[in-house]
Amino acid sequence: MDKVLSFHQGRLPLLVSMPHAGLKLTPAVRDGLVPAARSLPDTDWHIPRLYDFVRGMGASVVAAEYSRFVIDLNRPEDDQPLYVGATTGLFPATLFDGEPLFEHGKVPSAAERAGYLESIWRPYHDTLRNELARLKAEFGYALLWDAHSIRSHVPHLFDGKLPDFNLGTFNGASCDAELAERLKAVCAGALGYTHVLNGRFKGGHITRHYGDPAQDIHAVQLELAQSTYMEEVEPFTYREDLAEPTQGVLRGLLEEVLGWAQRRYN
């Protein structure tokens, strides 16, 4: 049976989602990619490794196996745009630099893409929904952390250099305002790093769809600049010297999420 995701069930009311970490390709996608896309440059590289401490903390973890070049798990199934201006869709047609993703005439067929929606997108979202429901039933609330990363310079998508930590709460709609402020404070206390709340990245479909503070489900997206933990050019090498201090900040953020919720609900 094709493995489309990995899932670990934890013991805390926290689920960490990694929708863009996958590297697998279907034959139709693999055979159609332009040469510049074959190294999968727009991947959220090494995110499972960077967050490898969260299982030890007791969090649940779900991570994609398939590349976003096959189907983007952080986009709605109706493919409505999430951002004004340059963006990518449920079935990406371009690289982050705006260049075509597929060779002319080699885009996967509508039938193939319908299959990706059913066999890859839907199981991931079923897992998210079911685990959040389980956490809420057990604890009375649920916490969702959507873990992403991106090159710090992508002129087609944003101007200049991206801040290191880009927190997104869909302009306050996906989590409690106090929690967002506490996360900003953690980032502000992380010497040598920059941060922003609801800047260029406000949270994608996962954050917007599942975050519901009125129902005690709090969702936060973190878009992390890849310069904080890896080389941003091929072969996209993981840099332990950069990653270790960044992991310290990530741990602090997740501990703040858990601590805030415990104080709020217990």
Score class of each variant (00 low, 15 high):
74 N>Q: 03
98 G>L: 04
48 P>L: 04
224 L>E: 11
266 N>E: 14
225 A>E: 12
210 Y>S: 01
1 M>N: 08
158 F>M: 06
224 L>D: 07
34 V>D: 13
43 T>Y: 07
2 D>Y: 03
217 I>A: 03
9 Q>R: 14
231 E>C: 12
263 R>T: 12
154 V>E: 15
103 E>A: 05
219 A>M: 06
211 G>C: 03
197 L>T: 13
118 E>W: 05
105 G>W: 08
175 C>V: 00
68 R>K: 15
28 A>H: 04
108 P>F: 02
119 S>W: 10
203 G>R: 12
54 V>C: 09
98 G>Y: 12
18 M>F: 02
182 R>W: 09
170 F>I: 05
187 C>H: 08
179 L>Q: 11
70 V>R: 07
6 S>P: 01
29 V>F: 10
257 V>Y: 06
264 R>N: 13
58 G>D: 14
15 L>P: 15
111 A>F: 01
264 R>F: 05
174 S>C: 05
260 W>T: 04
234 E>V: 06
255 E>G: 10
5 L>W: 06
199 G>E: 15
106 K>F: 00
97 D>I: 01
5 L>V: 03
261 A>Q: 14
144 L>M: 11
111 A>D: 03
230 M>F: 01
72 D>G: 09
144 L>H: 15
128 L>Y: 08
16 V>P: 00
38 R>K: 09
94 T>D: 12
80 Q>T: 15
18 M>C: 06
252 G>V: 03
55 R>L: 11
243 A>M: 11
240 E>T: 12
250 L>F: 12
169 T>Q: 02
50 L>Q: 04
56 G>F: 09
201 F>N: 08
145 W>K: 05
125 H>T: 04
147 A>E: 04
80 Q>R: 15
150 I>R: 08
62 V>I: 14
64 A>F: 11
123 P>V: 00
160 G>V: 05
92 P>D: 02
173 A>M: 10
144 L>S: 13
36 A>D: 13
20 H>Q: 05
185 A>G: 09
132 L>K: 09
229 Y>M: 01
219 A>L: 09
31 D>L: 00
169 T>R: 00
2 D>M: 04
190 A>R: 13
